[in-house]
Design a protein around this nucleic acid. Structure first.
Lengths: 344, 344
DNA sequence: TTGTATGCGTTATCAG
DNA sequence: CTGATAACGCATACAA
């Protein structure tokens, strides 16, 4: 490996001059510059990234931790983060946090020890307090994806979950449904609460009363969605539609509904949330809320490098989700021959 | 940030001693060792990774390039690569290659300039010659996933695609089908050719004759699968089953079949290849060939660090795919009232 | 068992 | 516009 010194000798200049032409950080006379460039590609010179990092105290590496790499939409997220990073001549070091708080904390430490220039976090289990503590413990800039922590609001790239919840239920209402149940994610998570709140707002906005008996809490997983749906049915209240906190739970709910002999959307309409790829292939095509994860990834990467360079960032912090209409919702059939679901 | 020098002063020893206890590379007297450790966590000492990398000429970073981060099964792959890397105290720097050769080459260069300890490549478009040239151009160890290049065979983690193709068709044969068509991926790719070869072997193994007129080449994409299916039908030969080169093309084929009024698997059986997550949700559930991408990721990571440490690696190079039976194949109905498909 | 001194390849500060 | 040289923080050969 040729070093900067080799180049300087070959070009008959000092290492400082070589450094200057490499980084174009100062003016260099055209002819010496040319000599240096010739020497560089004669030797196939590549600057040593370790030495550079040591001298400048920055590595051009962004650290990223995500809850679960093999999950359904992290691909989109990371793909876009990486793309943006590359365009800004940065690299991304990836770590999967696993599911629990300890693993997420470990992942963060792992990256911090590595002295990344900035941290992009997509974490579920770390608490707001953890995040807050982390932010004041380290100098490293931190960007939070899909999360809103008030004290760190300038570092958050998040989505309006309340609006998303509302959009789904508004659509159900527009189709004539009024007996609308809700399957939420774990309510200790703020996004679950926000989506539920959107559900309630939509209901009340339509002059209906919100009732605890129509909502059940689950775990964002498919079997959990089935269980929740079963509990809902067993309560015996009439239901013509169910708004689910994410797509996976919607799959579970639909599966159980089919098992019990209901048709979806014929007897009961179901909506999801997230619009993961599978939802377009699911039968029936799932009507759901699309979250622009890709765009959020791009913004997160931009914010991260801006922060790393101590620039004032110009980024979009909040994104709006969109309703994706497919086949799992039908206008309410008011002709009267509707199956009375609580009689099963 | 406390440096090794700060620690040495506080503990009243030399920097060399501190280095020795940090890396446990030599014996240190228990009491001095204790003093050093106390000093370390009194100061919250963290070794500087850049300096360490510069001095040792290794970064403990594995570089990885994948064709498309947001694709369906890269999540599983990367998740496992990252997990294994972390367990071996390595990090992974990820780059997505995009779809064409130039981007893949760029991605590799990007990582090479970074001086990663090893490279894990999951690339489609780079040619065998590119890979071969790359291997002799750089000192950096290279591991190839899902690819077999004879000259680099000890660095390949691949799957037996011929066997996979054979398993799918053997199953179709066992269900009584004999008029079996095949939709392949681009035949310039060796895995497409291998799967096709498996198809042919199975046919001939059953005493049937292979015919060009029953195979059509497509592009591994869903619309391509539809087009290919249409071409196949338009040729007018009788067909009761179709073996597709991947799941996406199977989706496309099934969609077209449904559009033309056929039932799957009632009229025509379809198999896929890859077993991406969606296939379990697809309607009908897709019978397909499962490729153990996760396990391959683990092996690739192990191989990469072994190579980086100049150890003789003990890894499994070839993996066998498995048949996953779901609902898109039915035993051939020989009762005679079968729809004559070429009459449409 | 421990300490000293040098090198790793750059950047950046100061002179010239 | 260019050159000399001191950091940067750690590992390691060589001494003690």
């Amino acid at each position: 490996m040729a070093t900067i010194r080799d180049v300087s000798k070959k070009a008959g200049v000092s290492v400082a001059t070589v450094s200057r032409v490499v980084n174009s950080t100062q003016w260099v006379a055209p002819e010496t510059r040319a000599r240096v460039i010739d020497a560089m590609d004669a030797l196939g010179y590549q600057p040593n990234s370790y030495a550079k990092a040591l001298a400048t105290n920055r590595s051009d590496i962004l650290g990223m931790v995500v809850g679960d790499l093999s999950g359904p939409f992290f691909g989109d997220l990371m793909g876009r983060v990486e793309l943006e990073a590359r365009q800004q001549h940065r690299h991304v070091l990836i770590t999967s946090g696993g599911l629990n708080r300890e693993e997420e904390l470990d992942a963060v430490d792992f990256l911090l020890r590595r002295q990344v220039d900035a941290l992009i976090l997509h974490v579920d289990s770390m608490t707001d307090a953890d995040l807050h503590a982390l932010a004041r413990r380290t100098e490293t800039p931190i960007v939070l994806i899909n999360r809103f922590v008030p004290e760190l609001k300038d570092q958050c790239i998040h989505v309006n979950n309340e609006l998303g919840g509302r959009k789904a239920v508004d659509y159900l209402l527009a189709q004539g449904h009024t007996d609308i149940a809700c399957i939420t994610g774990p309510l200790y998570k703020s996004d679950s609460r926000a989506r539920l709140h959107g559900y309630r707002q939509a209901l009340e906005g339509a002059g209906l009363t919100f009732s605890e008996s129509m909502v059940v809490e689950a775990d964002y997983m498919e079997p959990g969605g089935s269980d929740a749906m079963a509990r809902l049915l067993d309560r015996g209240y009439p239901i013509t539609a169910v708004a689910c906190g994410n797509d996976l739970m919607a799959y579970g709910a639909i599966r159980l509904l089919k098992d019990r002999g209901f048709s979806v959307p014929g007897d009961i309409a179901v909506t999801g949330y997230d619009d993961i790829v599978m939802s377009g292939y699911f039968e029936p095509g799932l009507t759901t809320i699309h979250v622009p994860v890709g765009d959020m990834g791009t913004q997160a990467a931009q914010l991260a490098v801006a922060l790393a360079e101590k620039r004032v960032p110009e980024v979009q912090h909040q994104f709006n989700p969109d309703l994706i209409i497919r086949d799992s919702v039908q206008p309410l059939d008011t002709s009267g021959h509707k199956k009375k679901i609580h009689s099963l």
